[in-house]
Nucleic acid binder design. Structure first.
Lengths: 178, 178
DNA sequence: GTCTATAAGTTGATAGAC
DNA sequence: GTCTATCAACTTATAGAC
């Protein structure tokens, strides 16, 4: 397995957080991955940390701010995992792997509108750029990203009749874009 | 535009509903499309109908039951709209059109796990079968469906840098599967 | 089929002391 | 940075009368 490249410093979402805020964010990620976003209440997060819920507001102004940080961390981690790019087939394989290893974070980072103002400038583009590098063409890159996202999300949600998508389906997809 | 074929009677989700329950369902769909699923509370629905919220429980046992009906109606309508199948390109175009015309119902019907026990038996398969007819091969059908779903949902959520996906991206996708 | 009254639970968030 | 006390809003859902 290819080793991931590190994210440029200016894209690191935790750059400006206090150490304690980082711990809160870490706990939030743990809880998110364990129980899903719907279960991630401020109370549940406080319990996980062993503190009272109102204390959280000393570290994050609102639940929404915390959510944006989680999304940003997701974009950073996923972007890192997809580098360096070797081929379309490898990119597709890696995308599936990293999403499958962090399903709830993946859902949170890709579902619904994106609050771009709350993200480090450039992070979103950087996160998706492996698709451009793999295809060498912007429209093709977008189409490939959308296709792979569709596969991943339908698989995570158990939408394929077989539960997860058969290998043949993944191969079919990768081949069409190779 | 090709005319849609009617859904077989046994797949009609409203088959066993009372006339009044159908009206409630209709209002729910209107409200869903207007304000989104998050805003569709039992109170809001009752207001839309001009009745009190508890009265709704005479027609649907729970909010979850209502949701399942909405999902079923979505699968039926989308399945209808995709028939008869003429080509992969036409299917992809039509899929985008019908999802774009009912974005909130599309979201509801495709997001998250599917409660298959609450659906008319066979409806789910029937709804997706145009993809098999268009591709003539099951794995290819799944891959195409996933790819198109990814495009649609990312476009609805405003996830493409350009807002909606450029025509070139859609063409790219359709061409890969033609 | 509709109503009123109400239960019972949840949530994010604030004030102010320490 | 943490606490306690508390608010204000909101949800789905039930009981029972008409």
């Amino acid at each position: 397995m290819t080793r991931a490249e590190e994210c440029p410093e200016e894209f690191d979402p935790t750059r400006l957080l206090t150490p304690r805020a980082r711990e809160v964010l870490e706990a939030a990620r743990t809880l998110l991955e364990r129980d899903g976003w719907a279960a991630l209440t401020m109370r549940a997060l406080a319990d996980e940390l062993g503190i009272a819920a109102p204390s959280l507001y000393k570290h994050f102004a609102s639940k929404d701010a915390l959510k944006s940080q989680l999304v940003a961390v997701g974009l950073k981690d996923f972007g890192e995992a997809l580098r360096p790019v070797t081929s379309v087939a490898a990119l597709v394989r890696r995308y599936r792997e990293v999403a499958g290893a962090n399903p709830e974070l993946y859902r949170l980072a890709t579902h619904g509108p994106l609050d771009r103002d709350a993200l480090p400038p450039g992070l979103e583009d950087w996160s998706g750029s492996p698709f451009f590098e793999a295809t060498g063409e912007p429209y093709r890159a977008q189409a490939l990203w959308a296709a792979v996202h569709g596969m991943v999300i339908l698989e995570l949600d158990g939408r394929f009749p077989t539960g997860s998508a058969p290998k043949a389906t993944w191969d079919e997809l990768a081949n069409h874009f190779s």
